[in-house]
């Protein structure tokens, strides 16, 4: 097996006296689709920021194959562009290619064709010339994925990309991402508080609770004994009609929220 696309080793992040991440360890390989699952406040966004190098860990290391910049594509959370922004989806994708370069962009056929191919790959050709802020959530999501992918990263991070999408758009985005991971041999890490939309395509899961993480295949992680150990108290993993529900044993506990969310 080749070198992991991402190696997170014993990462600990402390804000004051609060441990947001506590010895988080996992690896991602190219071509794999991984879900980063955890309830709100479990530390998902902090972990993504550590991987992006925007937050330095108090302990532990993050190693990205192929160095830092350009090696990671990123789609931020709750992305809402200003409707007045004078910018086509096409322009935003082009900025993914060379947005860090100084000087005016020189229009070239090669650049144009690469952008066009990327738009086609994410199914965004139809709305690529509209003002990007006026697109729907799902359409913006596709443009952003193209923006992140066009620099040919080995690792693609998405922070709650499904949060603002309706069920159908969410399904489309998930299957698009799974296809991209396989075909382009990219490691995709997608954070979500709801794992069910990801279950059909997820190769591996990193499950975060209170800053601690377990990782492995879905069958290895989403189990009553493993998650109870992670949470530090008893939780039940129920499978209903192909959906997974995590229910906390103690309803008064704040993780009960999590269980309710999963049922929803």
């Amino acid at each position: 097996m080749d070198q992991p696309a991402l190696d997170v080793a014993s990462v600990t992040v402390q804000f004051g006296s609060r441990r947001v991440l506590d010895g988080v360890t996992f690896q991602l390989r190219r071509g794999e689709f991984t879900g980063l699952i955890g309830s709100n406040g479990a530390g998902k966004t902090t972990l993504l920021r550590v991987i992006l190098g925007q937050q330095s860990p108090d302990q532990g290391t993050v190693t990205i194959a192929g160095g830092r910049h350009g090696a990671v594509g990123y789609v931020p959370q709750k992305f809402l562009l200003d409707p007045d922004m004078p910018l086509r989806g096409r322009d935003l994708v082009a900025l993914g290619l060379d947005g860090h370069r100084l000087g005016l962009p020189r229009p070239s056929r090669q650049r144009r064709e690469r952008v066009q191919a990327m738009l086609a790959a994410v199914g965004a050709e139809r709305f690529a010339d509209a003002r990007v802020g006026r697109l729907s959530g799902g359409e913006q999501q596709r443009i952003l994925i193209a923006h992140a992918l066009i620099s040919e990263p080995q690792l693609l991070l998405l922070d709650e990309p499904l949060a603002n999408l309706d069920l159908r758009s969410a399904k489309e985005v998930v299957s698009l991402l799974a296809q991209i991971a396989r075909e382009q041999r990219i490691a995709v890490l997608i954070s979500a508080h709801e794992m069910n939309p990801l279950l059909p395509v997820m190769d591996r899961v990193v499950y975060l609770a209170d800053g601690r993480a377990v990782s492995g295949t879905t069958d290895e992680v989403i189990r009553t004994d493993v998650l109870s150990h992670l949470y530090g108290h008893h939780v039940d993993v129920l499978r209903l009609h192909g959906r997974v529900v995590v229910v906390a044993g103690d309803i008064d506990d704040h993780h009960a929220d999590h269980g309710v969310l999963e049922v929803d």
């Binding site: 935003l92 947005g99 952003l144």
Partner: peptide
């Protein structure tokens, strides 16, 4: 357009 996207690069 987005400080976040710029920072991520």
């Amino acid at each position: 357009i987005s400080p976040e996207l710029a920072a991520a690069r």
